[in-house]
């Protein structure tokens, strides 16, 4: 995983280091939607640089605050391992990964760049929050655009898709079934 990023030992300020951490995290991809980085996904809530222990011999450390998308997302553990490996490879010594549950993750935190990447990958990106699920049965669906032919003439097949974060749709025009990264 060579990223061409500077070695952290050449950076001086905590701000520079923090920026560097975000650049490193941009290279850590969601294993289930491998076009999105954990930063695109909006699950990185904060980064704190930990100063080297006094007395020498140590190096910079970092604490990364991560929130899960869904409680049962099976990718949580593997994402944490990938974050740890990427940071170790770039020279950080102590790495803490802390899980934050509140505020609860929402698809509103997916970056604009992430939405474009999803669409190019064939997954319809989530609408913004106004369409979040309510428990009322048979509620009206918002029109979801087909990521292939751009038609809005699509229908919901199932609110639950191949992963917890997606719903199944089908385009009524090009007939292609597709995933919608459902609003959450």
């Amino acid at each position: 995983m060579s990223t061409g990023l500077e070695n952290i030992n050449t950076l001086n300020t905590q701000d520079d280091l923090k920026k560097q951490v975000y650049q490193i995290l941009e290279t850590v991809l969601d294993p289930e939607v491998p076009v999105l980085s954990v930063v695109d996904l909006g699950i990185i809530r904060d980064v704190q640089i930990l100063a080297p222990p006094s007395g020498g011999g140590g190096g910079w450390g970092v604490e990364v605050f991560v929130t899960p998308t869904y409680s049962g997302c099976p990718a949580i553990d593997i994402i944490n391992v990938h974050i740890r490996m990427a940071l170790l490879q770039h020279g950080f010594k102590e790495i803490r990964i802390t899980q934050l549950l509140s505020p609860a993750w929402t698809t509103d935190w997916i970056s604009e760049a992430g939405r474009e990447k999803l669409k190019a990958y064939g997954i319809a990106p989530p609408h913004y929050r106004q369409s979040v699920c309510t428990p009322e049965a048979f509620q009206a669906e918002e029109a979801i655009q087909c990521p292939l032919c751009q038609s809005y003439n699509t229908r919901l097949v199932s609110q639950f898709g191949s992963t917890a974060c997606k719903a199944l749709y089908q385009c009524n025009d090009c007939k292609e079934p597709f995933d919608y990264f459902k609003c959450h």
Binding site: P68, S71, L101, S102, P103, A104, W105, H184
Partner: peptide
């Protein structure tokens, strides 16, 4: 409270 907030959406 945090677990409840998270779980409620699901």
């Amino acid at each position: 409270a945090a677990i409840a907030e998270k779980s409620l959406k699901e």
